[in-house]
Design a protein around this nucleic acid. Sequence first.
DNA 1: CGAACGATTAGCT
DNA 2: GCTAATCGTTCGA
Length: 189
Amino acid sequence: MSTGSPDPFRFDEDAWLVAPRLVGAILTVDGVGGRIVEVEAYDRSDPASHTFRGPTRRNAAMFGPPGRVYVYRSYGIHWCFNIVCREEGHGAGVLVRAIEPMHGLDRMRARRGTGDDRLLCAGPGRVCQALGIDLGHNGMPVDAPPFRLLPPDSPVEVRSGPRIGITRATDVPWRFGLAGSRFLSRRLP
DNA sequence: CGAACGATTAGCT
DNA sequence: GCTAATCGTTCGA
C-alpha cells in the first residue's frame, strides 16, 4: 500500500476486527482529511447492514474486493463513506463516522460552510461533505489517489459501543471510537 | 407501480 | 430533545 508495509489494516478480515484498527489512522482525499476517530462495522449477517438482503445495484461495491470504497446516499441528502472488508462477495465494511480535521482545514470549512472545526467531520455525512466524497468515488481503491490512508503512528485507546441511527441489531457493540476525542459525532458509552 | 423507509443533519424548543 | 427536509432504494401488490 501507500503506507510502506503491505495492507496493515488487513481488510480481508471481519469488519468488526478491521474497524478498531482504523481508529487513529490518517485518511485524506486530495490532501484533505485527518485522523479517523469514529467508525462502525457492518456485516452480511447483520440485520442493520445494507448487504443483509443480498447484492443490489446500490451495495454492489460492498460485494466487491476488500480495500475498496463503498459510497451511498443517506436520507436522499448526504453521502456516507465505507471501506469494504472480508473477501470479495461477502458484503462487509466499515463506515467512517468522524474525523479529527488535520489537513486542508480551509477547504473543509468552505465545503461545510462553517467555521466550527469540531463540526467539520463529526458524522458520516459531514465527513463526506468536508472531504469532497461523493458517488464518483464508489468502488475506488482506498490505497490509491485521491485517497491516502496511513496507519496510526502511535498506540491508540479505542472504546466501543452500540451503533448509531439504526433500528435493528441495536445492541451489537460495533461502534468504535478514539477515547476522549472531542471530534466524535457522539459521546462513547 | 405505489409507498414506506432510512448506517443523517440542521435548526428550533 | 424533537422534527422537517429530501430522494434513491427496496419491497409489496
